[in-house]
Amino acid sequence: MLKVFKYEFYNLIRSPAIWLYSLFLFFITAGFTWFTEDPSKTTSAVLTLTIFLMPIITMTISIMDYYNSREFVELLLSYPLKRGDVYTGKFFAQILSLVIAYSIGYLVPIVIKGWFYEYTLSLYISGIMLTGVFVSLSLMFGVLNDDKVSGLAFVVGFWLFSTLGYDTLVLGIALYLRNYPVEKIVIPLMFLNPVDLSRILVVLKLDVAALMGYTGALFKEFLYSKLGILMALASIFLWIIIPYIITLRIFYNKDW
């Protein structure tokens, strides 16, 4: 596994797409830190943009890398390597290179400003975990679809659903049931969407959470209890592990 990981990583870390992504994050974060002196406002602005754009960028890089390397995967599979090792090597190489790009793009401006707060850190950690989720999902879409166009359609579809569609749905449900204690339904629903979950984890650390009123307080109480944090982590890890296992199974039985 490590042998595949090493060379896949060498290849990705030298690819312009990874560095463009890093540069893009750098300009967003640096731009916001430049224009406001309020770290909390900056974080919420960066949060909105990152959480919205990061899925589509990381998933596109990940799935295109998979499609471009299909013939190479074929060559690797003709070598005395286990199929699972070839896939796992690629999986971790993608995660690591995207996390490095993200870390440089996001952390450099934050460190320059010296903004070491709970919410800047929780945004950083959420970003890393989301990278894992998106790589795992986009590789699954790639391995499931031999056709590039349908693979990308899945990526775009998932992106729109998780960043926009799901929220609309939750909002609709909350409005419909507004006469009942809504949080009992909304909290479990949030756990089902990794994007919403990480957004809320960061937002609750910000002062703006106060604006969310009674429900916001309830959220905070639950999410930052031991059980809440554990459940949030478990939910994100399941989003990484379940697609990974599904992909591994398909990968083992796939014809190249």
Binding site: E8, R70, F72, S78
Partner: peptide, 24 residues
């Protein structure tokens, strides 16, 4: 997969990772 240690394969369309060198 052990039998593959004794096989050399040359694929039809060689597409290697673009940023690696033959030395890599």
């Amino acid at each position: 997969t052990h039998y593959k240690r004794d096989i050399g394969y040359m694929a039809q369309i060689p597409r290697f990772p673009e940023n690696l060198t033959p030395t890599d």
